[in-house]
Amino acid sequence: MTALLILVMIAVPSACFAWLLRGLDPLGRAMVGVAAALCLLILVPQTMLIVRAWSPTGGLVAVGAICLLLAAAAWWRRPAAGAEAAEPVARHEDEDWIFDE
């Protein structure tokens, strides 16, 4: 049961962070999402300990609230229905300046 709880506690914030990062490739989104989730899961209890408000239930509620805020921000930033995604303009870097004398 504990392993399942740990998996859920890492997966939910990871998905919320990854949903917020649309510009990265899927592997990059997954890696950043997991790293951000681990940071969140470390910083919430530390903050709660500093303010002397630690409880496991309170930590779960705090992480859940932060995930809800992240999901709301990602939903709010989503493209409008029917709008086409803007194609990134390919830039060709001119590196000739390196060899100028």
Score class of each variant (00 low, 15 high):
L7M: 08
P26Q: 05
R78K: 09
C39V: 15
D96T: 15
S55I: 00
G33H: 01
V34R: 02
D96P: 00
A53I: 05
D94E: 11
L43G: 10
L5Q: 09
V44N: 04
Q46I: 15
I66H: 00
G33I: 02
M48F: 05
V89K: 12
C67H: 02
I50D: 07
A73F: 03
D25Y: 09
P88Q: 10
F17Q: 06
L21Q: 01
C67A: 09
S14K: 00
F99H: 13
L68G: 15
G58W: 04
A35N: 08
P45V: 01
R77W: 08
L69I: 12
G28I: 01
P56G: 14
V89C: 09
H92P: 00
F17W: 03
L60M: 14
T2P: 03
E95P: 08
R91D: 12
G59A: 14
P26N: 06
P88L: 09
S14M: 08
R29I: 08
P45D: 03
F17K: 02
L41Q: 08
A72G: 10
L24R: 10
W76D: 02
I6T: 09
V32H: 00
M9Y: 06
L38T: 07
L49P: 02
V51K: 03
G28T: 07
F17G: 01
P45E: 05
V63K: 03
L41C: 10
